[in-house]
Computed example of a mutant assay.
Amino acid sequence: MRTPIRTLALLLPALAVLIGVFAYPLAQSLWLSVSDPSLDLSNYVWVFGSESNVTIILRTFGIAFLTTVICLALAYPYAYLMVVAGPRGRAALIVIALIPFWTSLMIRSFAWVILLQDNGLVNQFLGVLGLGPFELIRTPTGVLIGMVQVLLPFMVLPLYAVMSGIDSRLSDAARSLGARPITAFFTVFVPLSLPGVLAGALMVFIQSLGFYITPALLGSPSESMISQSIFAQVSGLLAWGRGGALGAVLLLLTLLLLGVLALITRASKRTTGKDVLSL
């Protein structure tokens, strides 16, 4: 009996911090969503009854989805290159992937403001190529560029962690049995890397849903995301109930997404296992 008691004693500080900084504020926000200004569901009626709110929610999930897809498209070949590169090349690629963590999010966002403005470096370069100028800042395109740059390492690292653990002999075995290299890659390597894809996509997507600084600096009020709407309700209008309702809706939709991804992960593991055994 001593071991469980000691284990529980070691967990108590972490549980206290979790309750104090996460569970209690979350419970308080949920309570305010049904009690401010009156004890009813008027705040949720306001959320789903307003066309602008529904548009903001759909826009938020749309931008988060596009950010996830773009990050995956850029990170997958990069992580694969990290796996097949030599020790020095791998070390250089890892350092490049970690550089964003060494820079403040605010600084990176302001840097994109300078680069993406109408007469900024990006439009000047596009003008030299005869492709510009484009309106990049104060648009969803600018928000996507900034968010992808910030969240790309969160896709690269899980992919690399899974890819580095894949036994290369499995692909070699497939090729020795007559499969072409590209066929072996898509039928053996890619399915085995799906846990990394799902982990990275989950991290990027969920973080994208709550982004505030980058959309606020690179976007426009007419193209705001749900985090900006929550901030406007709580800080600008002191409507804590409406802000809590928006947060609760976002939390509920995120939990539903997690449930769907959990089911997909289980199905993919079963399918991957059957495919590998069939090979």
Rank of each mutant, 00 (worst) to 15 (best):
P133A: 13
I114T: 11
P181Q: 11
V128G: 03
R88L: 13
L131D: 11
A173K: 01
A199N: 04
I145W: 02
G200R: 05
L129T: 04
I182K: 14
L159V: 00
V122A: 01
Y160K: 00
L98W: 07
T187S: 13
M147L: 15
R180Y: 12
S176T: 14
I107D: 03
R175Q: 13
L202I: 10
Y160R: 00
G127P: 08
S168V: 13
V148C: 05
V197R: 05
L98E: 13
S109V: 10
V204Y: 05
L116G: 06
L152N: 00
G127H: 14
S104V: 02
I182D: 15
I145M: 03
F125E: 10
I114E: 12
L198A: 08
G120A: 10
L116I: 08
M203L: 15
P133T: 10
V128N: 08
I145E: 01
A201T: 11
Y160W: 06
Q124V: 08
V156E: 00
R180I: 09
L198F: 15
L126K: 01
G120C: 11
F134P: 05
Q124H: 11
V83M: 02
I96P: 07
R175V: 09
W102M: 13
L131I: 10
N119P: 04
T103N: 12
M203Y: 10
L105C: 01
L202H: 10
S171N: 07
A199Y: 00
V113S: 06
L136R: 03
T183N: 08
L192D: 04
G200W: 02
I96R: 03
L177A: 07
Y160I: 00
A174W: 04
I114P: 09
L157F: 02
L159I: 00
F110D: 01
V95H: 05
I99A: 09
L144S: 12
S168T: 15
R138Y: 11
A91I: 03
T183E: 14
L136N: 06
L144R: 10
P195C: 14
T103Y: 05
P191V: 04
